[in-house]
Deep mutational scan, measured.
Amino acid sequence: VTLFVALYDYEARTEDDLSFHKGSKFQILNSSEGDWWEARSLTTGETGYIPSNYVAPV
């Protein structure tokens, strides 16, 4: 499992996005959609889309 960590805070703009804070960790579920990845937050357990340029591999 590849884990990613948030580099910045992000406020969701749609109900499909995940809001998160810098330092939040994610499991990436689908990275084939270009700049928006489907991810599960390891902090909240919620699933949604995150901007790929806001995260980096742990």
Rank of each mutant, 00 (worst) to 15 (best):
S24I: 06
D9E: 06
L42T: 07
Y49R: 14
F26K: 00
L42K: 03
V5L: 06
E33N: 15
G34N: 13
L42N: 04
S19E: 04
W36S: 07
Y10F: 09
T47Q: 10
E11S: 10
F4E: 00
V5R: 04
R40D: 03
F26H: 01
T44K: 03
S32F: 10
R13Y: 07
V1L: 13
P51Q: 05
V5W: 06
H21D: 09
V58W: 14
L7F: 03
N53A: 14
D17R: 15
Y10Q: 00
R13C: 10
R13G: 09
A6P: 00
Y54R: 06
S52L: 04
V58P: 04
A39F: 03
S19H: 08
V1A: 12
T44A: 03
G48Q: 02
D17M: 14
A56D: 05
S32Y: 10
N30P: 04
V5C: 07
S19N: 06
D35T: 10
L18K: 01
P57L: 09
V55C: 03
S41L: 14
D17G: 15
G34L: 12
E11P: 04
L3I: 15
P51H: 07
T47L: 08
E33T: 12
S32L: 11
A56H: 08
R13E: 11
K22V: 10
H21M: 13
E11F: 09
I28E: 01
T44L: 03
D9Y: 04
E38W: 15
H21T: 15
L42I: 12
L3K: 05
E11T: 13
E38P: 05
Q27K: 07
S32I: 10
E38Q: 12
Q27L: 14
L29P: 04
V58F: 12
P51S: 04
N53D: 10
E46K: 11
A39Q: 00
N30F: 07
N53Q: 12
N53H: 13
P57Q: 09
D35W: 09
S52F: 08
S31I: 11
L18G: 00
G23D: 05
A6R: 00
F20E: 00
D9G: 05
E38M: 15
N53R: 12
E15R: 10
E15V: 11
E33G: 14
Y54W: 07
L3F: 11
S52G: 07
N53T: 11
L29E: 05
A56Q: 10
S41N: 15
S41I: 10
D35N: 09
F26Q: 00
Y54L: 12
P51Y: 06
L42E: 09
L7M: 09
D17P: 02
S32N: 11
S19I: 02
W37E: 01
V1F: 14
W37Y: 09
T47H: 08
Y10R: 03
T44C: 05
A56L: 09
W36L: 07
E15C: 12
D35I: 10
L7N: 03
T2R: 11
E11M: 10
V55N: 00
W37K: 02
R40S: 06
F4P: 00
E11D: 10
G45T: 03
D16G: 15
S19K: 04
L7Q: 04
A39E: 01
P57W: 05
L18R: 01
D35Y: 14
E38H: 14
L3D: 06
S32G: 11
W36C: 08
R13T: 13
L7C: 07
V5Y: 11
W36G: 02
P57E: 09
V1C: 15
I28D: 00
S24Q: 15
